[in-house]
Simulated assay, not measured.
Amino acid sequence: MKTWEEIATVQPIATKMLTNMIARDRLAHAYLFQGDKGTGKEVMSTLLAKSIFCQHIANGEPCHVCKDCVRITSGNHPDVHKIIPDGSSIKKEQIVHLQKEFTYTGLESNQKVYIIVDAEKMTTNAANRLLKFLEEPNRQTTAILLTENTQGLLDTIRSRCQIMALKPLNAQQIEKTLQTEGIAEANARLFAAFKPQIEDARLLHQDERFAETRKIVVQLIEMLQAGSNELLLFIQKQWMSHFSNRDQLHEGLDLLMLWYKDVMYTHIDKEESIIFIENQEKIKKISMHCSKQDTTAILYAIMEAKKHIEQNVHPTLVMEQLTLQMQR
C-alpha cells in the first residue's frame, strides 16, 4: 500500500480523518497511531510525512516522485527523523539527540517531522524527555508516535497526541494481501485464518515447521477416517515428538479445530467459508460419515483438550483421550 486511496481500503476512518486534516491544513502537532502489526502504522506515518513535504501534492495524494517524496521513501530526508528502539528500548540519549537536531533550522524548509517506532518501548527517562518536547509544540514540527500498546505510554504523552486507532485487519483482507504477494490462495487462506495478523501470517509461508505441522494434522485425520489400529502409536511416536511444548500442542489442536469447522461449514451449506480449500473433497467425504451432531461433539472435545493442556494435564494422555473421542 503506497497511497491514501489504497490504505483507505483497510483503514477507512483513520485515512479519512488524516486526509481531511491535510486538505484543510489543520494538522495536529502530534499523532499517536495505535494498532496491531500489519495494520498500516508505518505506511501511514510515511504517507503523512510525504503529504507534508511533497512538492506536487494533488487531491490529498503525494506524488511519490518528487525529490522530497523519494528521499522520504529511502529514509534520507534531512528534515524527517525516525527513531527505532536501540536494542530492547528507546533510550533518553536518542530523544536528546532528536531535540538537538530540531534546534537547527531546517535544511530546506522550516518544517520538521519525527517518527518514533514502538513508542511504548521508551524508557521512563526517554518518555519524560519527550514529554517536555511535546509540551512546547512548534507549529512547524509534527510528531508521529507508533505503538501496539498504548498502555505502555505515559498518560500525559497520550493526552498531547491526536490518537488514530487503527482497526485490526480481518482474515479476508490478510488473505487478499498475501495473495498479492504471490502466496497461493490455499496457503493464503489458511495462514490468514490461523494467524490473523499480517506479519505473523507472512512468517508461516517461510516456516518449514508449520508445513510439517499441517502434514501431521492431515495425517491424523486420514488415519481417523480409515479407522486405523495404529492411532495411539501415531500419537505417541509422531504427534508427541513434533508437538513437544504447550504452544506447539495448541497449534496442532487449533489446526484440528479449523478442519472440523470446515466439516461443519459443509453441513450448513457454507462451503465458501472453508479454510482447507485444497482438501475440500476430503472434507466433503468426512461430512458424509460424520454427522452435524458428531462434528459438534468433536469440536467440543478439541476445546476441552486445549483446556486440559492449559491445566497441565499430561499431554500424551490428553491426545490419546481426544483421539478415542474422535473415533467414536
Rank of each mutant, 00 (worst) to 15 (best):
H267M: 07
E208L: 11
V96A: 12
E6H: 04
E6R: 03
Q179N: 11
A127L: 09
S51A: 13
R160H: 05
V217F: 01
H289F: 09
F194Y: 13
I95N: 00
L48P: 04
K307R: 12
A126Q: 10
H64R: 13
T3M: 04
I198K: 14
E5M: 11
K92C: 02
N187R: 14
E136L: 05
K67T: 04
T150K: 14
M257H: 13
T9F: 10
R158C: 11
Q99D: 11
L166Y: 01
K50F: 01
Q140I: 07
K112S: 09
Q206R: 12
V117R: 04
Q111K: 15
F191N: 12
K92G: 02
A184E: 15
E181K: 04
T213E: 14
T150L: 06
P62D: 08
K285Y: 07
K2W: 09
I157G: 12
L98N: 00
D294F: 07
L32S: 01
A165G: 10
L134T: 07
I274H: 08
T3N: 01
I198T: 14
P12C: 06
M326G: 03
E185M: 12
N125F: 10
T103M: 15
E199R: 13
T39C: 11
G38E: 06
L146K: 01
Y114W: 03
L130W: 01
T103K: 13
E61P: 03
N110S: 14
A58M: 12
Q238C: 03
A58E: 15
L18I: 12
I72S: 01
R189Q: 10
R209S: 13
K16N: 11
Y31V: 00
C290R: 09
T142G: 08
K195I: 05
M303K: 15
Q151P: 00
S74C: 02
D207P: 00
S291P: 10
L253T: 05
Q179S: 09
E199I: 15
T213I: 08
K284W: 07
I72G: 05
H205W: 06
